[in-house]
Design a protein around this nucleic acid. Structure first.
Lengths: 197, 197, 197, 197
DNA sequence: CATGAATGAGACTTCATTCAT
DNA sequence: TATGAATGAAGTCTCATTCAT
């Protein structure tokens, strides 16, 4: 790709973000050196600094990009679907693919957060996005009579998200993927029993 | 207490471990400097090296100690109790008090793991401890007829643990403690509906 | 103007030199980045390297150009004038306009000098030019009987130059321009009292 | 010197400041690397960071220390003396020894100043200290009838300081020390002629 | 000729660890 | 044993310079 085309810079930026995302979530913010990212990309350290002014800024952009992508995908699921559709193994796989939980990143994020107010805002925003989406879906289903009227949708929503995050962490700790997926399906199945009419 | 008595060394060791545990779980392994731990303890950096040969070794000991304490407490709950007893807000608070989830530590642990096989073993051991405890409890309840025969106890056990871990992470991210506790109670209540006879 | 005419190159060279002169004297050699100069000129960094082989070489050319211009102006003053004419506030303003003192540049020059013999030669040459001009003027006035015969013209010349340079440095340090100009006039007045017949 | 004595840290601090002062004034702030200062001191780079949190902070401390020392010495001269005493070659030598002019440092200071308000304050303070001391001396001499009543002491004071600074810069540029000293004596002599009764 | 993305040497800074006192 | 000054390896970041387009 010729370097003069206008899209070039944006593509280069995205390549850096994608690579950094992978490395940050696998090794963590501190264990990932700028030189690692650079050599993984096949460029020099300096090149990255043309696109991001610091390692911390790169991290912020990685999180922002990642958060937006997650939000888009999840919204798609929630809007078109029902609670049943997210109780499936397919949904779980899809989430996994997108590192939708990304507990790894979240922990580092949390630690950076102490020094970076913008990060904290974003963090809260992303979490709220998920929560609101679920809550809205549950409310709609309730008013459609698909869900029992006495369901505490706030707890239900938070519980589902917590289950998801916890299962991710188990995966990270080395749990077997099939077992984890099965757990999702089984537990979500139980919950659906309880709340669906 | 005169410094020459043998207990002194053990007490000093424990003080270091307790302080390091707090700091590692709040700031993370990388953000916590040896000098921070030392000044928090009111001793010199050198003193810590009389008890632990390296920062990594200190981390390992912190995790070992923490893991053992958690295991003890949880075993107590599980042995004396039933699934109902762990569905309560009291149990949740108790877990919280002991950093029983300690996702923060787990993440750092996971990252250290890449270079330290012993750590990985311990990690898996701790997780299995929890899992086995729950599984055993569930099996006993099933054979007592307190739980429906068709329950997939492995998934149930893993799901409960994942729920716990996920809720911890939400707390870390700034969620309200009362809401999180309530979520635990509500979701566990649903699950009990499904599995208890 | 089409870019291929030979004058173009010379004009482009001069534009770079003028811009660099301003930036070097305001921010200093080290604080001025090639990219700053380029963006101030509205061209790319690469373009500058078509005219100057390195930042250091550009600095040398800036100094040469500046020295020559100063020399021309000062010669004009000295040849057509008398000591009285350089004791005026107008002369002071004129000097200022041309950065005739340019202590800022001189200091950077001095520091470059350690590695660059050619620079040192030029530096000495410029300083001598001033000195010789003044000395010659004083000698002529003396032989015309306008100056007392016992005047140490070497010290007088050097003293005048030192006064000028010192006042420039005061300006740079934030002194009020009117006060500085007045000082020049007053002190030069005293000195004229002493040396004129 | 044993490292446990309380004075040790202060002495170490001063050694660093003295060495840094020499190197900053000879090579300038930018050309002086922390590793140069360290190896000149015979210690590692890291050691300096136990005493100063950054290169810039070291520079500030160097200037503060230097400014205070200069102020002390000059005050002594001015208080005990008369304008005649500072018109001597001995005074000039003394000033030189203490880098009392320190134009080199001042230029770097000036450049740092853009980013550091505290520095600018100090700079102004030091300059004012000199000026006030001279002005006070001249006023006293005037009221004692030793100086002509119509002397503009503000301009005289500034002129003397400018002469000093200018001569320093000439020395830095390679002028002969004896000639420079002689210039000081001669020009100050002329000025004394004009202002003393 | 011009561009500006990429390079890479080198500067600053941090911090786990050591060791003389 | 305890101290904390010193070390030095390693990481982040800068910027003059090059070169493919």
């Amino acid at each position: 790709m010729p370097k003069v085309v206008p899209e070039y810079k944006e593509q280069a930026r995205m390549r850096i973000i994608e690579t950094a995302l992978e490395m940050f979530s696998e090794r963590g913010f501190y264990r990932t050196r700028m030189s690692d990212i650079a050599s993984n990309l096949g460029v020099s350290k300096g090149a990255i600094y043309q696109y991001f002014e610091s390692k911390e800024q790169l991290f912020v952009e990685v999180l922002r990009h990642h958060g937006e992508r997650r939000a888009r995908v999840v919204r798609g699921f929630l809007e078109s679907g029902s609670l049943m559709s997210i109780s499936t193994g397919e949904f779980f796989d899809e989430m996994l693919e997108l590192r939708l939980g990304s507990l790894e990143l979240s922990i580092d994020l949390l630690r950076e957060t102490a020094r970076n107010e913008a990060l904290r805002k974003m963090l809260v925003g992303i979490a709220e996005g998920w929560g609101q989406g679920l809550v809205k879906l549950i409310e709609e289903m309730k008013s459609d009579g698909k869900i029992r009227a006495d369901v505490d949708f706030s707890s239900l929503s938070r519980g589902i998200l917590a289950l998801r995050d916890g299962l991710y962490s188990h995966l990270m700790m080395g749990a077997d993927r099939n077992e984890v997926r099965k757990t999702w399906v089984v537990i979500m199945g139980y919950l659906m029993n309880d709340v669906l009419t």
